[in-house]
Design a protein around this nucleic acid. Structure first.
Length: 278
DNA sequence: GCGGAATGTAGAT
DNA sequence: TCTACCTTCCGCT
């Protein structure tokens, strides 16, 4: 269950494990039609933008005559399982298995399909800038996001989840970055100051880079950890330490106010009504 | 064993 | 604003 950091980590892990190595591809579930076309071919590149993962095949995967990309989006349920070869017999839910010296099993993705370089470019075009990219182009330019945010009456909580505005932020990073900056999630985007946006973007970059490195989301500053403050740690465990995400009714790590939750655009929003003011 | 929830998105209305 | 889709896991019977 991924936000952008998971996808960038997967791009790196696929590059390390599979680029330039003899591969065995299979689709045990029978729902990935690209297996036949890619049989015997070499993975030559990987890429990530927001929550979209791309695995490139062909001498020049960006424009060569044999260029193909596997486009993968994990959605809410998609999950990877990694291990050392030989892989055990796959279960019926494995959409895609890639095997070299190690193997990766993909289950439950929203998308797993072959796309052309042009189709890949179209996906980049409809995504906003990604705090984790470092291409020096439109795909990581925070000014593009600010242009949308600063003109919008939509709440900052909804804007942060809109992949056309910012690519890669999900429900955990949204809740946590708004908490870290003391921003009420219901504030309209146009009410934010440029300074607030710059700080949010810089923080997302730092937090999400940590997420890629550690393969989990940790957002709590050392001085606010349960160990440092003596407050009880959150019971639920999604793999990291956070201020408000899924800490409903538990005391805020800073002020002790019960953390609030409310549905917003089909997702649960979490915030501290005391620390996050309009 | 069942129901609900989960780090998500697309498409219909 | 709603529904559908995909899979796993946890808490409750």
């Amino acid at each position: 269950m991924p936000e952008g950091h998971t996808i960038h980590r997967l791009a790196r892990d696929h590059a390390d494990a599979f680029v330039g190595r003899p591969l065995q591809l299979s689709g045990p579930q029978g729902r990935f039609a690209g297996v036949e076309r890619l049989r015997g071919r070499e993975m030559t590149a990987t890429d990530a933008h927001g929550k979209h993962l791309f695995l490139g095949f062909g001498e020049d995967p960006d424009e060569g005559p044999d260029a193909d990309w596997i486009h993968i989006h994990l959605g809410l349920f998609g999950k990877y399982t990694w291990g050392l070869a030989p892989a055990p017999p796959p279960t019926a839910t494995v959409r895609l298995r890639i095997q070299a010296e190690s193997y990766a099993d993909l289950r439950g993705p929203t998308a797993c399909a072959l796309v052309t370089p042009a189709e890949k470019a179209a996906i980049h075009d409809r995504l906003g800038p990604d705090p984790l990219r470092d291409a020096g182009d439109a795909t990581d330019d925070p000014a593009r996001a600010w242009a949308r945010v600063s003109r919008s009456r939509t709440t900052i909580a909804a804007l942060l989840m809109d992949q056309k505005v910012v690519a890669g932020v999900g429900n955990v990073y949204r809740a946590e970055v708004l908490f870290r900056h003391g921003i009420d999630p219901y504030r309209p985007g146009k009410d934010l100051t440029p300074g607030e946006w710059d700080a949010i973007w810089a923080d997302l970059r730092a937090l999400m880079r940590d997420g890629v490195r550690d393969n989990r989301i940790d957002t709590v500053r050392p001085e606010h950890t349960p160990e440092a403050t003596g407050r009880a740690p959150r019971k639920d465990d999604h793999g990291g330490e956070v201020y408000v995400y899924r800490r409903t009714a538990m005391p805020c790590l800073l002020c002790g106010t019960p953390v609030r939750t409310a549905p917003l655009a089909h997702r649960n929003l979490f915030w501290c009504p005391t620390c996050q003011r309009r």
